[in-house]
């Protein structure tokens, strides 16, 4: 991973920027192939990139890379049945973190890497460069979800993690973000440069862990729906793509 590596990624961006094709494809959101997984179960999964970026004159642009961030559970926002929860994620999940490992593949993009926290745990990944993803085709970016275990003493029935994704069609600084350069499948209200422009918070993909163990009797037979959203600080830290510490997107 070196200058040549970065140059290839950037070159791909320039090629993609020049390769615009008239016509929109079906505008499916970028989502996970397997969005619901039972607890204590590993699963092979894919980020499914649905389409390229759209331009003002009706052209579409190929995707040259994607950046994916999972909530780290450290400073994340936690909702329980829609209400804020002041406690820690460990109130509901025993082992969140380092769960989603990038699976090496050059099927769509040539280069890829994982995003790590200070302890070396994977909090996201990216893929890009090489061939671009034609705007009218779906792209599968593979990863593996490890076994997530819901705290058995909790009343959590499901835990939904919101996954923030940027599908990049042109490398730009944050000031260059628009519908022609990047598709954001992110929250619309965090106050980061990576926020999706939308009136509703319909951007992020989701990964829901479903409880298989019995609820404690004290739960009264009704489980709680827990949701986990990333903090703005985490998105600002983890959404950029870096190679050997050097940021290549946005720039």
């Amino acid at each position: 991973m070196n200058t040549g590596y970065k140059l290839k990624f950037i070159t791909a961006s320039m090629i993609a920027a020049a390769t615009t094709v008239v016509g929109h494809s079906a505008f499916a959101h970028t989502r996970l192939e397997v969005p619901i997984i039972n607890e204590a179960t590993r699963a092979s999964n894919n980020v499914v990139v649905g389409h390229g970026c759209g331009s003002e004159n009706g052209e579409s642009r190929n995707v040259i890379g994607t950046s994916v961030v999972f909530p780290d559970g450290v400073d994340s926002t936690i909702l329980v049945d829609g209400q804020p929860h002041a406690g820690a994620l460990t109130d509901f999940v025993q082992n969140w973190g380092n769960q989603n490992q990038k699976v090496y593949s050059k099927a769509v993009f040539t280069f890829q890497g994982e995003k790590l926290d200070a302890n070396g745990n994977v909090v996201g990944f990216w893929a890009g460069g090489g061939d671009t993803l034609p705007h009218d085709l779906a792209g599968y970016i593979p990863f593996r979800t490890g076994a997530v275990i819901i705290e058995p003493t909790s009343c959590a029935a499901t835990v939904k993690f919101y996954v923030s994704i940027a599908d990049i069609c042109e490398i730009t600084p944050t000031s260059g973000f628009n519908e022609n350069t990047v598709n954001f499948w992110t929250h619309n209200n965090l106050g980061t440069p990576y926020d999706r422009v939308s009136t509703t918070d319909d951007g992020p993909a989701s990964l829901t862990i479903t409880r298989t163990s019995a609820l404690p009797e004290s739960c009264g037979g009704t489980g709680l729906a827990v949701e986990v959203k990333p903090s703005a600080a985490q998105i600002n830290r983890d959404m950029p793509i870096k190679i050997d510490g050097a940021q290549i997107w946005p720039q």
Binding site: R42, G97, N98, Q99, N119, N121, A147
Partner: peptide
């Protein structure tokens, strides 16, 4: 069997 690790502190 299935083996995964998460580092909490170092």
């Amino acid at each position: 069997t299935g083996t995964d690790i998460r580092v909490n502190q170092f």
